[in-house]
């Protein structure tokens, strides 16, 4: 038992980009365990996605059925546990997306296995000790999973997207017997936005409490985002104040992003926030407080009144 199983996520009939980053981790893990990489693709009408996944791994287990029409943890966790048995996997990994965070620990309970969350990579040149952030990103812990089966959720921003393998793998259907469902999907309200998704965006503009109130947040940040084709993010303080929905929160307890350009506007730079954006390629900070901790990590710091600097930036872009 040394195979590695990757749990693929399907979105709009295709493999979600975050899954490709988890494949990179899975391949490295398989070289360490001496096993093969398997994948499980779960959903309703997922033939296309399963074929796509087969470009990356040796064996794909396709769990297809009406019960998987919506990504409900109760059913998906059982499918993952079933795929563990079918693949004889010692290590199961999945990207730490909203769905991954929901379903993977439940699968760990079904398998009575230990799980490491939000893993950044392996700790040593060999072996399976891993690094993960704790204490709001203040500390990097090296963890060892002692159970025979090990589950790992991987932080998408820490791994490159994998390229297809030299040789495509095979797809096989897998049937899983489910318990009577106790979870019902009621509705999904897609957030319709012309802007890119926060975790996939090339540019992120993020606002903090320096913007004073919800109205100025929207008045200043939205045009700036539109001008740059950027996604909008926010600090925890802003989410706490109810100016924007929680899903815009960048930080250890929110979304972790690593865009090419991150512009922090009126954000002081609490460790909690920095833990969610410090892998960005270029970081810009605009803040009137020259002592704000955000300047300690920013590539380009502008000490200025954001209510003047942001409109001026709009003009010059």
């Amino acid at each position: 038992m040394s195979n590695v199983l990757i749990v693929a996520e399907v979105q709009n009939q295709t493999i979600k980009p975050a899954t490709l980053t988890a494949i990179t981790f899975a391949r490295e893990a398989a070289t360490r365990t001496g096993g093969q990489v398997h994948a499980v693709v779960i959903g309703q009408g997922i033939d296309g996605a399963a074929q796509e996944m087969a470009k990356y791994v040796a064996t794909v287990h396709a769990v297809d059925g009406d019960a998987y029409g919506h990504p409900l943890a109760e059913m998906y966790a059982q499918a993952i546990a079933g795929a563990q048995k079918a693949s004889n996997a010692a290590l199961i990994c999945m990207a730490a997306t909203a769905h991954g965070k929901d379903v993977l620990p439940r699968a760990a309970a079904l398998l009575e296995a230990g799980m490491a969350s939000d893993v950044l990579g392996f700790a040593e040149a060999s072996g399976l000790a891993m690094r993960r952030p704790i204490q709001a990103g203040n500390v990097i812990a090296t963890v060892e999973i002692t159970s025979t089966i090990k589950l790992v959720s991987t932080r998408p921003t820490e791994f490159e997207a994998a390229a297809p393998a030299a040789q495509a793998g095979t797809v096989g259907a897998l049937n899983v017997t489910l318990t009577a469902p106790k979870t019902r999907h009621v509705k999904f309200d897609k957030v319709t936005s012309e802007r890119p998704e926060l975790t996939d965006a090339r540019v992120v503009v993020s606002g903090g409490r320096g913007l004073k109130d919800a109205e100025s947040f929207h008045k200043l940040m939205e045009p700036l985002a539109d001008k740059l084709g950027a996604a909008i993010g926010a600090s925890r303080a802003v989410v706490d104040s109810g100016w924007v929905p929680n899903d815009l929160q960048v930080g250890q307890t929110g979304k972790v992003v690593a865009p090419e350009l991150y512009i922090a506007v009126g954000i002081s730079g609490a460790i909690q926030h920095v833990a969610g954006m410090k892998s960005s390629k270029a970081i810009v900070a605009i803040n009137k407080d020259a002592e704000a901790p955000i300047f300690q990590i920013a590539d380009y710091g502008l000490v200025a009144d954001l209510f003047k600097a942001v409109p001026e930036l709009m003009e010059k872009l």
Partner: peptide, 12 residues
């Protein structure tokens, strides 16, 4: 709050 939107579920 999930990736890309808001999901409502009912749990028994």
């Amino acid at each position: 709050e999930v990736d890309g939107g808001l999901e409502t579920i009912a749990v028994t």
